[in-house]
Design a protein around this nucleic acid. Structure first.
Lengths: 225, 225
DNA sequence: CATAAATGATAGTAACACTATCTAATATGG
DNA sequence: CCATATTAGATAGTGTTACTATCATTTATG
């Protein structure tokens, strides 16, 4: 493990062995992201992943019980990471409006000026979350999994953004709706810009993140100020 | 087929035989919705469906090549239906604000005062779309499927709502973003209210549709007026 | 150096996602 | 009413997926 790598606290019920703690785990995470990006969640299997990292199915199963938990792990990592970015970049800012603007920026871009780890490509992970992330919680067992705390990362992230919203306008009655919608909207609209452009107004695919950030900030301002 | 049943034009590339045209097809659609609602898309198989309708796997395959196309068919039916509701209920209204308000109402509620068909339970279908609908277009083959026109229903629906938005405020620069986000937001927030309440402000699960409609209209007004 | 922990190798099973073929029932058109 | 086409049922089979189990081997640790 690199000397300065950050390790996020992710619910241990998601894995049998923490992939953040071993070389093998790092290889597993890194190539999961790449493979998910290449062939999608439906086509993804532990067998294919094992072959890709010159390993075996049984070894992969020692880390994760199934690909759903792996996807949820990666999604949690993403949520933790965005949360970390928002906390870090708003820490020394006083003005609530500026603080919220920084949050919007990090929600949309989730870009890594300085990557946190050697083994997670944050940009590729963001693309995976855009394409597959919603499948991590649109599952039949959601209520049981929620009881086990598997979505804590997302709930805390939404809670933080919700507070930033309320700082800007304490009278706004729907801070949680706006916060969770900002995340869903950001990922959806990037997905639409790439694949279903008729569903969005983002025309310039070169600077889609910038355009989306502009659109989101425009709406947030109208709603809150 | 019931005498007054409506039949929507759904892209024939989605099926081998149009299930809207036969008794068997009706049974198939009706029970697909119920079974998807009960066990979720991941657990759903053609075998289970076949057993449920006292039929065989091979007969189901004569209608749909795989469960993805079946889900997309149902989702298209839902989009066509919401589109139909919006067109119908705004037809004789002049005031653009009232027209948009009606659209918001139908997006959120998608309720059937008078069901269109005997074989599709619109309320159950709505629940399935809330839980599973996004999986219909978060697929690896989205670009090819989009080329084949498989998402036309959604694009037209968003286009219609986008126009209603522009009628209210022709200067608003993001009518498509707002329109598509209204659909995504409506279904997501209902899902959150049911399963991840920390992500929303909708507290009263008895009147969640009402509360959500209120929240959405509040934000739409702020954004446009 | 001894022991534990992690990984590899291999095998096996039930379910899933189809495809093919043949038969039986049903509808339709003349 | 018969001939024919259409539709559904029945059955079989195949490769893949999603695991579980066991045992051997390698690698880390005290």
């Amino acid at each position: 493990m690199g000397r300065f790598d950050i390790k996020f606290n992710i619910n241990p019920k998601l894995f049998n062995r923490d992939p953040q703690d071993s070389e093998y785990g790092h290889k597993l995470l890194k190539n999961s992201i790449l493979l998910l990006d290449e062939i999608g969640f439906e086509g993804f299997t532990f067998k294919k992943l094992a072959i890709r990292i010159d390993s075996t199915e049984s070894s992969v199963y020692r880390y994760f019980n199934n690909k759903h938990f792996l996807l949820l792990f990666l999604t949690c990592w993403y949520w933790e990471w965005v949360h970390y970015l928002i906390i870090t970049y708003t820490r020394n800012i006083e003005d609530p409006v500026k603080r919220l603007k920084i949050a919007v920026h990090n929600i949309v871009n989730a870009s890594n000026e300085s990557p946190l780890t050697e083994y997670i490509n944050e940009n590729k992970l963001h693309e995976v979350v855009i394409k597959e992330g919603s499948k991590a919680y649109h599952v039949h067992d959601i209520d049981e999994e929620n009881k086990e705390g598997l979505f804590k990362s997302y709930k805390e992230l939404v809670s933080t953004v919700s507070s930033l919203i309320s700082e800007v306008n304490p009278d706004f009655p729907y801070p949680h709706i706006l916060a969770s919608n900002m995340f869903e909207m950001a990922n959806n609209q990037i997905f639409f810009a790439e694949h279903l452009p008729k569903l969005t107004d983002i025309k310039n695919r070169q600077k889609k993140y910038q355009d989306l950030e502009g659109a989101m900030w425009y709406m947030v301002q109208k709603i809150l100020m």
